[in-house]
Every structure is written in C-alpha cells, then in structure tokens.
Amino acid sequence: MSLVGKVALVTGAGQGIGRAIALRLAKDGADIALGDINSQKIEEVAAEIVALGRRATTYVVDVSKLDQVVAAVDHTYAQLGGFDIMVNNAGIAQISPLLEVTPEQVERVLSINIQGVIWGIQAAGKKLKSLNQRGKIINACSIAGHEGFALLGVYSATKFAVRALTQAAAKELASSGITVNSYCPGVVGTDMWVEIDKRMAEITGAEVGATYKKYVEGIALGRAETPEDVAGFVSYLAGPDADYMTGQSPMIDGGMVYR
C-alpha cells in the first residue's frame, strides 16, 4: 500500500489499460480521478474503485484540448483534496500505409497522442509547482516508440515523440522534484488491438485474428500482455521505489523489442 494518501489522475481511464491502471493505483492506496471522453465508462470504473474503499471522482475530458486537461487537473484537486500523480494514458491507434495516410488521420492521432501528452505534462507540472510539492508524471508510450512498425508509421512516430517529451520534461522539472517517465507496452489484449488486427486484415488480406496471433507468437514469454501487467509497472513508477528514476521509457512487453 505504498500509495496511501496520494491522489492520481488517470486519463483514458474508462477501459483497457487505463481502467487497469486506475484500479491498481486504488488497490495500492491512492484516491483516483478518472478522465475519459466516455462518461458512462468512467462512472462504472469509479464504482469499482469506491467498492475497493478508495475515493473516486470523474471528469469528461478530451485530452487534445488544453483547457479541458487543465480543468481535469483542477477538478481532481478540488474534489479529492490533493494532486500527486498524473498518468497521461489516453491515446488512439492509427493503422494505414504511409503512402495512403490522410491529413485528417495524421491530425487526429497527433492531437491526441502527442498534444494530449504535452497538455497533460503542462497541466500537471504547473499544478504541482503551484502546490510546491513533488510529484509523478507518467506517460503512455509503446514498443512502437522504440521501433517503427509497418502500417503503424504515424502511430509509431507519435510514440517516439512521447519518449522525447518524457526526456525533455524530466530535465525541465527535476529541480522541482517532479519525475517524468513513460511505460512501453507491447501486444495487450484490449479493444485497441482488436481494431489494429481488424485494420491489418483489411489492408493485408490476412484473416481476422491472424495479425494478432503472429505478434503474440513472437513474444518470448509466450502469451499476450494483459492490462494488469502494464498497471503493475505503472504503480511502481507512481510509487516511492521509483523516486530516483526520471526521463526513462522502459518496455514491458514480455520480450518482443530489445534495446
């Protein structure tokens, strides 16, 4: 229970990895603010957190909008009486050959995966500095932030950008006692990978499920990753054992990409 007394805001918390992170941080003692564009889903997760004996609040937020992210951080502090941890988890996939990707597709994925992280870092950093307290900012990266994948070129570029933002923010905020790190999952059995597999099938002509199966077969530990696998690592980054770690984007992928 290393997070007792801490307050965390998790974006993209309505499902998948974000939901698992919110629940794990709550199990480890934190009170949780849940941010997502889907109000129904975060209310359901909030009920799960309350059932664990922790406090929870929700806020509908589009992370591509700076004012909404700032408002989510302010809401967290106002409702839960503190602010210690920011998990910039919200993100989307984008599957398309680079020769066919459209300006609209590029704009959408960059606005969420890159701008969303920038606004999260900015809002959280300013709030923590105004409170004159230490804190943790944790960003969603990916193995695609260490290696570019075919048909995921734009998505990979956004995750490379997250690594750069994590390093730059870590250097800028270290003197204020704020650490900034990222987590880099591999093939996680979530709705995002269902969509990736479906689009890959449409583009390549492979059967639905074949792309997912191919990637899972390449995992050294022999199984797909679960959201809970990711959440356990994020809890470590959020806790005191990671106080001397900043600017890093480690992979937690079961053995797929090695650096």
Rank of each mutant, 00 (worst) to 15 (best):
G116V: 12
C141T: 14
V50W: 10
D197F: 15
E217C: 10
E225K: 05
V73N: 04
A174L: 03
I85R: 10
T179N: 11
G222A: 08
A93F: 11
G12I: 15
L34Q: 01
G35M: 05
G189A: 15
N139Y: 10
S64V: 02
L98D: 04
M86F: 11
L110N: 03
V117A: 09
G125M: 13
A30M: 13
L3N: 05
E104P: 00
Y236Q: 03
T57Q: 08
D84R: 07
A22F: 08
V154C: 12
I143C: 09
G91A: 07
I118L: 13
I17H: 11
V10P: 08
E172A: 12
I42T: 03
G247E: 00
G135C: 14
W119E: 02
K171V: 09
V109T: 04
Q15V: 14
T190G: 14
S235G: 05
E202Q: 07
A33K: 02
D229S: 08
A201Q: 01
A47H: 11
A157H: 05
A224K: 13
M200E: 03
R54K: 11
L23F: 11
D31F: 15
L151E: 08
V69H: 07
L173K: 03
S130M: 08
M256R: 08
T226R: 11
I49G: 10
L237I: 07
P103K: 05
F233C: 01
C141W: 12
L98R: 05
E228G: 05
T179E: 03
Y155L: 01
K213S: 15
R24V: 01
G247P: 00
P97C: 00
I37V: 13
L80E: 06
R163M: 15
A26N: 06
A90S: 02
L25W: 04
M86K: 04
L34E: 02
F83N: 07
I85K: 09
E217P: 12
V45L: 14
S176R: 10
L99G: 08
R163D: 09
T11F: 03
A22Y: 06
I143Q: 05
A224Q: 13
D197M: 14
I32K: 11
A47P: 01
V4R: 07
E228A: 07
A242M: 13
W119F: 15
A238I: 13
I219G: 01
F233T: 00
A224S: 12
A210L: 09
G177L: 01
A56Y: 03
I21C: 12
R223S: 07
F83R: 03
A242G: 01
